[in-house]
Write a protein that binds this DNA or RNA. Sequence first.
DNA 1: TATGAATGAGAGTTCATTCAT
DNA 2: TATGAATGAACTCTCATTCAT
Lengths: 227, 227, 227, 227
Amino acid sequence: MSEKKQSPIKEKSPGTQTPSSLRRQREREHRYQTILTAAERLFATEGYHKTSMEQIANASEVSVGAVYFYFKNKEDLIIQLMDEIGYLLRRTIGSVFLTHGPTMESFKLTGQAFFEDFCVNNPEKCAIIFRESVGQSPEVETRRKVLFDKCTGDVFGALKSVIAHQELAFKDKLSAEVIAVSIMGIYERIAYQYLFWQDRSDELKSIGRDAVEFILGGVSNLVTKTE
Amino acid sequence: MSEKKQSPIKEKSPGTQTPSSLRRQREREHRYQTILTAAERLFATEGYHKTSMEQIANASEVSVGAVYFYFKNKEDLIIQLMDEIGYLLRRTIGSVFLTHGPTMESFKLTGQAFFEDFCVNNPEKCAIIFRESVGQSPEVETRRKVLFDKCTGDVFGALKSVIAHQELAFKDKLSAEVIAVSIMGIYERIAYQYLFWQDRSDELKSIGRDAVEFILGGVSNLVTKTE
Amino acid sequence: MSEKKQSPIKEKSPGTQTPSSLRRQREREHRYQTILTAAERLFATEGYHKTSMEQIANASEVSVGAVYFYFKNKEDLIIQLMDEIGYLLRRTIGSVFLTHGPTMESFKLTGQAFFEDFCVNNPEKCAIIFRESVGQSPEVETRRKVLFDKCTGDVFGALKSVIAHQELAFKDKLSAEVIAVSIMGIYERIAYQYLFWQDRSDELKSIGRDAVEFILGGVSNLVTKTE
Amino acid sequence: MSEKKQSPIKEKSPGTQTPSSLRRQREREHRYQTILTAAERLFATEGYHKTSMEQIANASEVSVGAVYFYFKNKEDLIIQLMDEIGYLLRRTIGSVFLTHGPTMESFKLTGQAFFEDFCVNNPEKCAIIFRESVGQSPEVETRRKVLFDKCTGDVFGALKSVIAHQELAFKDKLSAEVIAVSIMGIYERIAYQYLFWQDRSDELKSIGRDAVEFILGGVSNLVTKTE
DNA sequence: TATGAATGAGAGTTCATTCAT
DNA sequence: TATGAATGAACTCTCATTCAT
């Protein structure tokens, strides 16, 4: 119930570090990542529940005990994965806006970045956040909500900023939020459909283009000119 | 090896039926439904994995064996639920088009029917198809795909027919499909967001209106006038 | 614990019998046999434990309840089978002696009758007494012992009578018993080996001849001339 | 799908072994044997089916999980038992021939070794191979066949070698095989009869002597002098 | 007599987690 | 730090048997 230990990776004792302690630190981080990567692959291919801690240990070539040294429990594994993936996803999407500014063009590029880059290159990460983390424990569900809320918030923020720069306004106060949520839904379902249910990741480029077109049309329909 | 039994509900021996056999038939169907309803509630509130067959038996006030008499196994329970829900969902959505014909107005009404009627009145059914059936066994996943494919197909068909009646055409051959999938994504995510993650089902009416507006805008952006 | 009912077949109320009661009697016996035959086939092919009462009911085209009307329980089924088979087996073997008298020739013919007739024509009955009834409940084991004891007794009796008629005597007082048991062992194992483990029932004729030859040699080695 | 684990006993990593790893290895083997012995006793006294994994765990003073750590499943337990017993049986019988050469005397001594040594000292092992392993799963049945085939093969080989050394020949090409199978049948049934059905293991010495006499007589009857 | 739905104890098996070494 | 043997609660599923109709 109570927090029994911190992840050994997060805690860093800043200060004097001997060469050997640095090496150990490096090894620790390396193992941590090895385990996490093995878990990601197994969760994505076998399913979260069908994957046992022993399988993860074997795949990472460490003992079961070692997995428990680096991660509090099985739930912690998927939560760390979600954090990592969420970070990567937001960076992938966010970087577009950083370089292109608050324009409609950025919106297009963001969609492209998601479909052509993130999805195609990280199908297993997609499997984690869109499939394996769904309907698990309350804690995992909460983390999933946080992840989606952040992404939706990013879209929401970008949306507002783009609209503001174009002297436009949303139809009503819910509109921006609904748009953001809708966009997330489109992203999620298209990824699910064309990565997991059909194997058409090679078509994701054109599919993504249409989806972005759809989104832009949708946005324009919930926006009005300001005086 | 071979199928050991059919669901005792499905088989109907038409012919001479004594009153007592009719009553038994009724009782059987009643029990079947009782168990299924109990399972739906438990899956939705406790989660599919956390719910044990014993809990379902207790909630339906029958023995564990009785549950297994009516359903092959736990997986069968969720599959039957999905079938039932899928049927209800398609009827809810489809009936609009039957009464209003292939018009854009029907599209709006369909969205309303989904958000204001289906979601609000059947949050547990939404939980089953949008949350609890995700990432389970291959068989369940297949059924989920079938359910979604049917719905997407319905939307796809409606879309084509509406467009055709308006002397319009899709931008490219993928467009209609992408639109259909996107609409499903919007439906799914909005339901998930406002039913499970936030408790704003009372706002679903206005949210749904914006979502439909978004969808209509999206469609118009992937459509061109035919000569 | 206490005997709850008698098998409905065994009890016969001698006395006045109306035609309809006779017909019902016939039908009862017919059903009894149908069920028993189905059980025999299933036990032999699927195994005693793997066969459920429901399977037996289905195969006999009656309800589970009907099976329990004719047989006290599952154990009763295999016991009745063993009785029937034991009766047939003893008749097959015993009839030889009845027609050929207490001679060594009868011993040969008995062996032939067992291998070429009983085994070849009743592989499923062999499976019941040599395989499926082994290592079951104490009651079944007891019945198995009774069956074997009777057969061994038959052989024992025949042996003594043949030997007596030839003015011979057994080496010691155990000899006759040991011979009888050994003969049973040979019969059993050869049946098992060539019916279940290898499919060489077509060779059983020559195999049986050698086995009988072996037996005769064995007997002669435990017998001495009387003064 | 694939083999999930090897028996933790079989694998030996030759190489550097610390004292503590050696001790662990010893403890592992000890536990393995403890469980196996407990299973043997329970199977023999209670019956294979009536014995639950929990009973075995309790009798070995370990947890149920530990039993599954050392053995894949219940079937694996009886299979390992059969292997062990088969090994012991063949050694008991085979060692006679190694010390006494291919003579008829060896045949006698082998019979004695089986009845007076193996049976009397290992009634539970006899129960496993002659009773509890009969009519179980296909895998167990296959292993039983293998065990018997090996023993029969040993007898067969010994037989041929003895006969060859005495300038004798078998009556026909089946004879040697039939003799070997018959001998196995005699061994089996006598053990069964006098260990399980009657408690006359104290008489097994004289019974065995007669049985061996019987066998020798049988052999001589299927053998002819070569020119 | 016959039915077959219902029971419920009991089985085998899994696996996240712990902890002595 | 790292190991991996051990735990034991919990789960799904089976099936002989019963009994109201």
